[in-house]
């Protein structure tokens, strides 16, 4: 088997809060022992609700935050073991597109400055005319280079964010909810742009989203997270869910087709606090299939073609 481009091994991140005079120390595991291999050219989606750890995972993969334990391998090289200079070199091959194009661009920079920054950081020469070519790649006219972010629409700003991510011709891009703050009309433009760029430049994506419909449309494989842990990996975007939580997510996704109306059957209950997780399966309190075993023992993610972490899979 060929070596995956990205490999995560038991990647874990814990956060501690409090511990001052007045607040007791508490800790939560935002990402718990995630194993994941991403092949070159693949689009892997990570889906889950707020607090499931998907954004923490996105930042861990690029080592923007440090893991508590575990490894991140890029082409077989462990990023967690690299010293600063070598990490910077490795980061040339990786980039990130952020959720909010309003806050991820410096308001004082022109678009040309934004696009030049990766070259400055990486101490690489920037060709004359490179900015125009980068803008053309994301469907923006060259005239945008002189604009400041506030002069652009949300969709244009996110295109600038994508152009910046592409600046050093990375192999791998983490897309953290890149369309969550955009109108659906603009979301569709951005998704098609990303799709075309992947085909043309041979990119590999890790696509983080709360929108299962969008993830199933765009991704080859889908990782479902709940409270810091992977509960299921759908091997194909149209695979039937095996975990009750994935099934609930799918049923909560409302079809834009009035001829296929069905009763909305919401999950009971709310996501438990990550600071006081139940001892067994984190989903047991909301799960219609939960048994006594689920409440006392935590199911592990099995290694199979369609892995699921559940004692009573569908």
């Amino acid at each position: 088997m060929t070596q995956p481009l990205i490999q995560l091994r038991a990647l874990t991140r814990r956060f501690e809060t409090g511990g001052g005079w007045f607040t007791p120390a508490r800790s939560m595991t935002a990402v718990r022992a995630v194993d994941l291999a991403i092949a070159r050219g693949e689009v892997v989606g990570v889906v889950g609700e707020s607090g499931c750890g998907k954004s923490t995972l996105a930042r861990l993969v690029l080592r923007l935050i440090e893991p508590t334990s575990g490894q991140i391998l890029l082409d077989g090289t462990d990023l967690t073991a690299l010293p600063r200079a070598a990490l910077r070199a490795a980061r040339r091959r990786m980039a990130m597109v952020f959720q909010d194009p309003y806050s991820s661009l410096d308001p004082r920079y022109t678009v040309a400055d934004v696009l030049a920054e990766p070259f400055v950081v990486q101490r690489r020469p920037m060709d004359k005319g490179a900015a125009e070519a980068m803008l053309a790649d994301v469907g923006l006219p060259a005239s945008v280079a002189a604009s400041h972010p506030h002069q652009l629409s949300g969709g244009q700003r996110q295109r600038v964010g994508i152009a910046r991510a592409l600046a050093l011709r990375p192999d791998f891009i983490v897309l953290d909810e890149p369309t969550a703050s955009l109108d659906v009309s603009i979301q569709a433009q951005i998704i098609e742009l990303l799709s075309g760029l992947r085909d043309r430049l041979g990119l590999t994506y890790l696509f983080i989203s709360h929108d299962l419909g969008l993830v199933r449309y765009f991704c080859d494989r889908i990782v479902v997270m709940y409270l810091g842990a992977v509960v299921e990996v759908l091997p194909r975007p149209d695979a039937a869910p095996r975990h009750p939580y994935t099934q609930a997510l799918m049923q909560s996704n409302l079809s834009p087709d009035p001829s296929r109306r069905r009763a909305i059957a919401p999950l009971a209950g709310e996501i438990p606090s990550p600071f006081s997780l139940p001892p067994g399966c984190a989903f047991a309190g909301r799960c219609p299939r939960a048994s006594d075993r689920c409440r006392t023992e935590r199911p592990a993610l099995e290694t199979a073609e369609h892995p699921v972490a559940c004692f009573h899979p569908i």
Binding site: S185, I186, I191, G213, R216, Y217
Partner: peptide, 17 residues
């Protein structure tokens, strides 16, 4: 209505405005 991915839609068939 064409901006939203529907069940079973092929990649590349989504149209923005």
């Amino acid at each position: 209505t064409l901006c939203i991915p529907r069940e079973g839609m092929a990649r590349g068939s989504l149209h923005g405005i």
